[in-house]
């Protein structure tokens, strides 16, 4: 059962990584990168490191995404599309 979960999560993570590279919209890329971190925290939990899982869930998918969005907002000021 556990290997099935890991393979499923891994397929979604690699798909999200390619999506983060090839999406045209920067906003969608940032969200896809956040999805990778969120699923990585589940992998850490399966690997027996709940401390790392908590850190990754809060920092990797929470604060990093917010910081990317803040930077995107600052860069985008003045133009609405893209």
């Amino acid at each position: 059962m556990i290997p099935g979960i890991i393979i499923g999560l891994g397929v979604i993570m690699i798909a999200a990584a390619f999506a983060a590279i090839y999406f045209k919209s920067l906003l969608a890329s940032i969200i896809a990168a956040g999805v990778i971190s969120l699923l990585a925290s589940v992998i850490y939990l399966i690997l027996g490191s709940p401390d790392v899982a908590m850190t990754e869930a809060s920092i990797g998918s929470g604060l990093t995404t917010v910081i990317f969005l803040f930077a995107l907002h600052r860069v985008r000021k003045g133009k609405s599309d893209d």
């Binding site: 899982a53 908590m54 920092i59 604060l63």
Partner: peptide, 14 residues
């Protein structure tokens, strides 16, 4: 329990 200074600090920042 799992957790500690770094995780708690991040929760406070959020």
């Amino acid at each position: 329990t799992p957790g500690g200074g770094f995780q708690g600090g991040v929760v406070i920042a959020s």
